Simulated assay, not measured.
Amino acid sequence: MSDPHAYCQEKAASSGSSFYYSFLFLPPERRQAITALYAFCREVDDVVDECHDVQVAQAKLEWWRNQVRLVFEGQPQHPVGLALQDVIKHFNLPREQLLEIIDGMQMDLQQTRYLDWKALQLYCYRVASVVGLLSAEIFGHQNRQTLKYAHDLGMAFQLTNIIRDVGEDARRGRIYLPIDELQRFNVPARQILDGVHSDNFKALMAFQTQRARQFYDQAFAQLPKEDRKSQRPGLIMAAIYRTLLDEIEADGFLVLDRRTSLTPLRKIWLAGTTWFKG
C-alpha cells in the first residue's frame, strides 16, 4: 500500500477495537495521528500474540526498536514508521515513550505471571498508560494535570482488558492477575488455566473490577475543565470500557470460557452521546 496513513487506517479498522470508535469524531490531522499511534501499538502487540517462537518475537521487537530510531532520524521503512514520521513533526511524541511500549511487549515474552500489584502496575504502565500519555499529546491539552488523567485512564483500560481476557490469556498460558491476590482469594492458578469458575474466582474478579473503577474515578477527578473538550476521545473510550465492565459484572464474571463484548452499534451510540455531551 503506497499511502502509509491508509495502511494505518486499514490496520485500525480491521482490528474491531473500541479505540477505533473514539477516533471517529476527531478532526482529520489528529485522527490521522492517533490512528498511526494505534497502528504502531497493534504491530508490536501482534508480534507477541502471533509469534510462537520467542527468539523470533524478540528479533521482531528489536526490529521495531530500530524502526523507532529511524523514525526520529527520518529514515523509516515500514508504512507505520512513515506515518509516525509525519506525526512526530506535528505533535510532541517522545522517542522514549514509543520504546517503552515495546518494553511492555517484551515483558510478555519474558514472564507469564506477576507476583503482586506493583509488578503488574509496571506492565500496565508500559502497555497502556504510556499510550494514554502519547494520546493526550495528540488530542491536545493546556494543563499538565491532564497527563495524570491520561496515565490513570490507561491503567483503567488495561485492567478492564485483563478482566475481560482472563480466559483467553489463560489459553495462551498467561495469568495477569497477581499471584498474591490469587492466594488471598484462594484461587489456584491451575483453576484459571483449566477454566474452572468458582465463588472464590468471582470474589477475586469483583476485587479486580473495584480497582479498575477506582482508576476510572481517579482519572476523571484529575481531568481539568479546560481540557475536557479536547480529551473527548478518551472519555468515549471510558464510556465504552466502563459499560463493558458493567456487562462483565452483570454476567457474574463468566470470563473463563467467553469474551464479553459490545456490538458495534452500541459502541457508536456510546461514542456519539459522549462526544456531543462534550
Score class of each variant (00 low, 15 high):
L120Y: 10
D227P: 02
L133P: 10
Q191I: 04
D246L: 10
D227H: 08
S18Q: 06
L270D: 12
V44H: 09
K267S: 08
Y123W: 03
A59Q: 14
W275T: 11
V127Y: 12
K89E: 13
A219S: 10
W63S: 05
K267C: 01
T260Y: 05
A150K: 11
E50Y: 08
L93A: 09
R144M: 07
N161W: 04
L245I: 06
F139M: 15
K277C: 01
S198L: 04
K225H: 14
R258Y: 09
S22K: 07
R184C: 07
D180R: 06
I240T: 06
Y38L: 07
L109D: 06
L223H: 14
Q210F: 04
L265I: 11
R266L: 13
W275S: 04
P28M: 02
Q218F: 00
I102S: 07
L24R: 08
V187T: 14
W63N: 10
Y241D: 11
K225T: 10
E10S: 03
R30G: 07
V130H: 13
L70R: 13
D165F: 02
Y20A: 07
Q158T: 00
I175P: 05
M237N: 13
L244E: 03
L99V: 00
V71P: 12
V127G: 11
D169I: 01
D165A: 04
T160M: 01
H197D: 04
I102D: 02
D103S: 11
E137G: 01
F72T: 08
Y241A: 12
M155S: 05
G16C: 06
K60N: 09
W269A: 12
D169V: 11
E62N: 13
P4L: 04
L235C: 07
L84N: 13
L153F: 15
V48T: 14
R190N: 13
S15N: 07
Q218V: 01
F139T: 09
R171P: 02
A156Y: 02
A156H: 09
P178G: 10
D116G: 11
K148M: 03
V196Q: 11
Y123R: 05
A239P: 01
D45Q: 14
R242P: 00
A203R: 14
F139Y: 15
R30L: 00
Q210N: 08
A12T: 07
E50I: 01
G81T: 15
I175H: 13
S135I: 12
G154T: 09
A12P: 02
A219T: 09
R42D: 08
Q214D: 05
V80Y: 05
Y21L: 07
F215A: 00
S14G: 01
R42N: 07
Q208W: 05
